[in-house]
Design a protein around this nucleic acid. Structure first.
Length: 256
DNA sequence: ATGGTAGAAACTCTA
C-alpha cells in the first residue's frame, strides 16, 4: 500500500497538479490538507474519473481535509471526537484494514497568541484521541501537515527559527505528546539527505534557496512501521508553475 | 523592525 499526504493549499487551484501527481505516483491512499472548499464544491467526479474514491471534511475559505483511496474507504469520523472545533482539520477512515487519519494541525500564528494557545489545546485533544485509536487499531496511520518541525535537523536555519512558530519548545512538546502515544515518524526510519524539507515559504525565493521546514509527517503505529519499506518527500510538484507551498510525502507499506 | 507571496474573498484574514 502506497500512502501519501499533501497540503495542496486550495484544491480548486491545485487540481491539475494533483491529477498529474496521482497519475505519476499512483498512491493507493492520499491524505489532503487545506482543500479550502466546501463539501458541495469538492471535485469528487474528477477524482473518481482518476480512479479514486473520496471523503472530505471541508469548509469555506480555510482548512479542509480529505482522504482519497483506490478502494472504497469507510468513514470513521470527521473532526476529533469530543473536541468541539469549528475548523475542519481531521478526517479518518478505514481502508483495506488500515485506519487512516488525515490531519491539518493549526498553524498557531506566533507564540503567545490566541491561535497558539488553540494549537496547543488542539494537539492535546489529538494525542488523547489517538491513544484511544491506537488501542483499537493496530494498523493506524496519521498523515498530514503537523505545522511543527520535530527536530533542529528539520529546520533550514535552527538559530534563526529558535522560539518561532513551528519550532518553539511547547509545540515540539505537543508533537512529542502525539509521538509518545506510540507512533513512529516514517521519514526517520530511513537514511535521508540532509536538509530535507516539505514546506517552503512562497516569499524571498525560499524554495530556490531550500529555506524550508519538514512539517508534513507520516506517523505510523508500530504494526505499520515494521511494514514500511520507504518514506520520501517528492519535491517535483513544488517546482511547477503556481505550486502549493508544500511537497507531498509518500510512504510505501509492505501490506496487501 | 518589517516585508516579502499566495489563496479566498471581499478590500482583510490566514498562512
Amino acid at each position: 500500500m502506497k500512502i501519501a499526504t499533501w497540503n495542496v493549499n486550495s484544491l480548486r487551484v491545485r487540481l491539475p497538479h494533483l491529477l498529474d501527481w496521482l497519475a505519476a505516483q499512483a498512491p493507493d491512499v492520499a491524505c489532503l490538507q487545506e482543500t479550502k472548499c466546501e463539501d458541495a464544491n469538492f471535485p469528487a467526479e474528477e477524482l473518481r474519473a482518476a480512479g479514486y474514491c473520496t471523503l472530505h471534511h471541508g469548509q469555506r475559505s480555510y482548512n479542509g481535509v480529505a482522504i482519497l483511496a483506490r478502494a472504497e474507504p469507510r468513514l470513521a469520523c470527521r473532526g476529533i471526537p469530543a473536541f468541539a472545533d469549528e475548523q475542519s482539520r481531521v478526517i479518518a477512515a478505514d481502508i483495506d484494514g488500515v485506519r487512516v487519519v488525515s490531519v491539518y494541525c493549526p498553524n498557531g500564528q506566533s507564540p503567545g497568541s490566541e491561535k497558539y494557545a488553540y494549537k496547543l489545546r488542539w494537539f492535546d485533544a489529538l494525542s488523547g484521541w489517538l491513544a484511544a485509536e491506537l488501542a483499537e487499531h493496530p494498523r493506524l496511520a496519521v498523515l498530514g501537515d503537523f505545522n511543527v518541525a520535530p527536530e533542529d535537523r528539520d529546520v533550514h536555519d535552527p538559530a534563526a527559527w529558535e522560539g518561532k512558530i513551528h519550532v518553539s519548545e511547547p509545540e515540539r512538546a505537543a508533537l512529542r505528546g502525539v509521538m509518545d502515544v506510540g507512533f513512529v515518524d516514517a521519514f526517520r526510519l530511513f537514511e535521508q539527505a540532509e536538509k530535507s524539507f516539505s514546506w517552503w515559504d512562497y516569499r524571498m525565493g525560499a524554495f530556490r534557496r531550500n529555506m524550508g521546514l519538514r512539517i508534513d509527517l507520516a506517523l505510523l503505529s508500530p504494526g505499520l512501521a515494521k511494514a514500511c519499506r520507504a518514506c520520501t518527500i517528492d519535491v517535483a510538484p513544488r517546482r511547477l508553475e503556481r505550486p502549493s507551498d508544500h511537497a507531498p510525502v509518500l510512504c510505501d507499506l509492505a501490506i496487501p
